[in-house]
Write a protein that binds this DNA or RNA. Structure first.
Length: 243
DNA sequence: AATAGGATGGCCT
DNA sequence: GGCCATCCTATTT
C-alpha cells in the first residue's frame, strides 16, 4: 500500500480476507446536521498520533448543534467568534474547543449555517492500551482501574483517549488530513435501532433544550448515559437519507 | 443507585 | 464576573 493510499483507506481482517475501509469524503459531510449526526453512528474514527500509532473506535453517540436557529448552539443567531469559527468552515472541518477549565470537546462541521455535530461517545477498537495510558496520565491522584467501556463514553473522555486538543486538531480538514479521519464500515449498515433523546448538559430556552437532537446506538455499552424513560426509537433501515 | 460539590481556565458581555 | 455541549470523588440512600 502506498503512502497516499494509506491516507484514504485502511485495511482490516475479517475471515482471513483483507478488506479496505474508505475514508468519508467531502460528499459525506455535505449533509444537513441531523442526518450527518445519525449517519456518523457506526462509522470508525481514526487518529494517527505523532509516533504513528493508529487509534480506532466506533462512533456510538452524537449530538446535533444546528447553528443559527438553535438556542443551544455556540453559533446561535449567526454569532461568529474566534472560538467557534470552525462551525462555519467547510463541512468536515474539526471544531475542538476547551471547556470547564480542563476539557476538550470535538465536533465536525456539517452543512448548514454554523452547524456541527458533537461526538459524545466512542466504542474503543484498536490500541486500547494507548488510550488507557492517555486517560491515566490525565488523572491526578490514585489511578483506579479503567474499564474499556469507560475509556471514551463522554465527549471529553474521548478527546483525552484520542489525544484530541485545539493545538493539534482544531480546524483540520477530516477529508484530507492524515492526523485524523472517519472511515466507512460495513457494520454501520447493521445497526438495528437509533435512540433519540434531548441533548446532555445544555441550558437554554426550553423549546431547544427539549428537542431530540442526541442520537445513540441502542444497546451499545459504550454510550455515555441511558435515560430511564423510553425515548424515541428509529429503525436504522427506515431512516431516510443516511449515508 | 443517585446526588453533591470541587477542579480549573478561556471565552464573552 | 459569570458561564461552561464535563469528569471525578465522596457521601448518602
Amino acid at each position: 500500500m502506498s503512502e497516499s493510499d494509506d491516507q484514504c483507506t485502511s485495511e482490516y481482517f475479517n475471515s482471513s480476507v483483507v478488506r479496505y475501509r474508505k475514508r468519508l469524503d467531502a460528499q459525506f459531510y455535505e449533509t444537513p446536521c441531523e442526518e450527518m449526526a445519525m449517519s456518523l453512528l457506526g462509522k470508525i474514527l481514526v487518529r494517527r498520533l505523532d509516533d504513528n500509532t493508529i487509534l480506532r473506535g466506533r462512533i456510538v453517540e452524537t449530538e446535533s448543534y444546528l447553528g443559527h436557529d438553535d438556542a443551544a448552539s455556540q453559533s446561535f443567531k449567526g454569532k461568529i467568534t474566534p472560538r467557534n469559527e470552525p462551525m462555519f468552515m467547510k463541512p468536515g472541518t474539526a471544531y475542538v474547543y476547551f471547556t470547564y477549565g480542563m476539557y476538550h470537546c470535538f465536533n465536525i462541521s456539517s452543512k448548514g449555517d454554523g452547524a456541527a455535530v458533537l461526538l459524545r461517545a466512542i466504542e474503543p477498537l484498536d490500541n486500547l492500551d494507548t488510550m488507557t495510558s492517555l486517560r491515566k496520565q490525565y488523572r491526578k491522584g490514585p489511578k483506579s482501574q479503567m474499564k474499556i467501556k469507560d475509556l471514551c463514553n463522554g465527549p471529553a473522555k474521548l478527546c483525552i483517549s484520542f489525544a484530541i486538543d485545539i493545538k493539534s486538531c482544531n480546524k483540520q480538514d477530516l477529508t484530507s488530513w492524515d492526523g485524523m479521519w472517519v472511515e466507512e464500515d460495513e457494520n454501520s449498515k447493521l445497526i438495528d435501532t437509533i435512540v433519540c433523546s434531548p441533548r446532555i448538559g445544555i441550558k437554554c430556552e426550553k423549546k431547544w433544550q427539549d428537542k431530540f437532537l442526541r442520537y445513540y446506538i441502542r444497546d451499545n455499552p459504550c454510550v455515555s448515559k441511558i435515560e430511564k424513560i423510553k425515548m424515541n426509537e428509529l429503525k436504522y433501515s427506515q431512516i431516510k437519507n443516511l449515508k
